[in-house]
Each structure stands twice: as structure tokens, then as C-alpha cells.
């Protein structure tokens, strides 16, 4: 009898053990290794020369490129997550309506999401290229322009295109998150609101938005993490050039590690990025826990 009781207490932990082990090996250990590298002096050949205190962080923060890269990362994350959330939400509202070919439309929306990011970025790089780009060719064939237009005359223009590609590939994820939320809303709510004389906007802001909010929040937090850490788009289109003007933290640390052989500083940038994301995720967790506390 006693044995059974002990087993019942231990059993959940036994089932959890494989997951805990997996997380420890594939998540915790690499994170610890990055922290160890960030506080170590690593030679260009990759040899750990011992504890370096905050030296790597000091060097990173002192570099003129870092503040520029940090600003780019914030702009990149806010623009891509913000605009893709807005566009994704609108698209989900459209796709939630009954219309002919809705299934096909939904399938088409998935395409950008289902294709590899490198391919997407490569295709867009080809489209906007001044010399052999598809956009210039198309506009010339349509007779709208006579001479090739330089679509990327400044680093800012390049960065705007990169943000656009980021939005293009993120919208489907938002759309499907919101769509799943929309489909769980009871139609009776809209019917009774209509009977009470509520208009389209009133129904949208008082029924749809509050009820879709939980799925939208999860989707936004996940997007912040994905977009903040996104590498392929910026790397494929500009490699962060010219002179770090289009670099984000991830492409910058990649260059530090694999082009300049500064693994310690790259790890320090990685730790800074990790802490920023941890802060954002904590804000979300705190707000969720507070809400749960209120609900109870």
C-alpha cells in the first residue's frame, strides 16, 4: 500500500524526466556555455584563455557600432511585429468571412510561411535589384518606367525592404493565430449584439478584440522572440552592410564570431540579446500571472 503511494508521488517526475533531461542538454547547457564564453577571453583559434570578467561586455558597449545595431534591432522588431500583427489581424477578419474560394485563399496565405526564409529573402533581393531585378523589368514592360529605378538608394531604403520581407513572412502566422481565436467565438454573441443595435466597429472592439486577445498575446510574444532573433532575411539581403547600417544584434554577433574571430564579444552580444528578451518575456509572464490572480 505504502509502495503504491510512493510510486504515485514519484510517477509524475519519472514521466517528466526525459523532457527535463532534453531541456537541460539542448537548452540549459548551451545557454550556460554562451554565458561562460561571454566572461572568458577566447583566442581567434577558439581557445579559452581564462576568465575575463566584463571585458567582452566593455569592448562591445564601447564600440560605436553597437548602439546603432541595438537601435536597428528595436526598429526591426517593433516594425515587423507591429505591422505584421495589424495586417495579420485584418487578413484573419477577411478570411473568417464566408466567401467563394475561402479555402484556396487560406492555403495561399500559408505559402510565405511555409517557404524557407533564405529562399524568401533571396527572391526579394532578386525582385528589387536595380540591375537585373524583376520589379524593374516588370515596370519597364508595362511601360510605367523607361529607365531602371534604384529601389535601394540608401541604407534606410534597404532596411525598409528587409522589414517588408519580415512582415511578409510573419503575417501568415499572425493570421492563423487570430483565425483560430475568431473561430472559437460563439456566433450568438454577434447575433445578440446586432439585436441590441451594435454596429460593425462596436462589435469589433467590444466582442472580437477582447475574445481574440489571448491568442493574439501569445502570438505577439512568440513573434517578438522569433523576429528579434531572426537572421536569414538581413543576412541574405545586405549582410548588415553598409557599415552596420542594416545590422541587427544577431547578424552583428555572427560577424563578430565568424568574420572577426571575436567569439567572446559575440557571446557577450548574445547575452545582452538574451537579457533583453528575458525582460520582455518577464513583462508578459507578470501580466499573465496578475490576470490569472485576478480571475481567481
Amino acid at each position: 500500500m505504502k509502495k503504491k503511494k510512493v510510486w504515485r508521488t514519484v510517477q509524475p517526475y519519472v514521466w517528466l524526466l526525459p523532457s527535463i533531461l532534453l531541456m537541460a542538454v539542448f537548452i540549459l547547457l548551451p545557454i550556460m556555455e554562451v554565458f561562460r564564453s561571454a566572461f572568458s577571453e577566447i583566442s581567434k583559434a577558439g581557445i579559452n584563455k581564462g576568465f575575463a570578467g566584463f571585458d567582452n561586455f566593455r569592448k562591445v558597449l564601447k564600440s560605436s557600432a553597437f548602439s546603432l545595431v541595438l537601435k536597428n534591432t528595436v526598429v526591426w522588431t517593433v516594425a515587423v511585429v507591429g505591422l505584421s500583427t495589424l495586417f495579420g489581424f485584418i487578413l484573419a477578419l477577411v478570411l473568417n468571412n464566408e466567401f467563394r474560394g475561402r479555402k484556396v485563399a487560406r492555403a495561399i496565405v500559408v505559402f510565405p510561411w511555409a517557404t524557407s526564409l533564405i529562399i524568401q529573402a533571396g527572391v526579394w533581393k532578386f525582385i528589387i535589384d536595380t540591375d537585373y531585378g524583376a520589379l524593374n523589368t516588370l515596370l519597364q514592360k508595362l511601360g510605367l518606367i523607361t529607365k531602371a529605378v534604384n529601389w535601394t538608394p540608401t541604407p534606410g531604403a534597404y532596411f525598409a525592404w528587409e522589414c517588408w520581407v519580415g512582415i511578409f513572412v510573419t503575417v501568415p502566422f499572425v493570421t492563423f493565430c487570430v483565425l483560430s481565436g475568431l473561430q472559437s467565438i460563439d456566433a450568438a454573441l454577434y447575433e445578440s449584439a446586432t439585436v441590441d443595435g451594435a454596429g460593425y466597429w462596436q462589435k469589433l472592439f467590444n466582442i472580437t478584440v477582447p475574445l481574440v486577445k489571448p491568442s493574439l498575446t501569445v502570438c505577439t510574444v512568440l513573434n517578438i522572440i522569433y523576429v528579434f532573433n531572426s537572421f536569414p532575411i538581413v543576412w541574405t539581403i545586405t549582410k548588415g552592410d553598409p557599415a552596420n547600417r542594416t545590422d541587427t544584434l544577431v547578424t552583428y554577433l555572427y560577424k563578430l564570431a565568424f568574420y572577426n574571430g571575436k567569439s567572446g564579444q559575440a557571446a557577450a552580444v548574445s547575452v545582452i540579446g538574451f537579457l533583453i528578451l528575458l525582460f520582455c518575456a518577464s513583462l508578459y509572464m507578470i501580466s499573465v500571472l496578475r490576470k490569472e490572480g485576478k480571475d481567481e
Partner: peptide, 17 residues
């Protein structure tokens, strides 16, 4: 050399700007 290589590239790209 690795720092010089990246450094002269940065100089060129900043000069372009």
C-alpha cells in the same frame, strides 16, 4: 589582420555614406 580586414571594409562603406 582580421581586424584590419574588417576595418578597411568599414572605412570604405562609411566613406560611401
Amino acid at each position: 589582420w582580421a581586424d584590419v580586414k574588417q576595418g578597411v571594409i568599414d572605412v570604405e562603406q562609411n566613406a560611401l555614406l
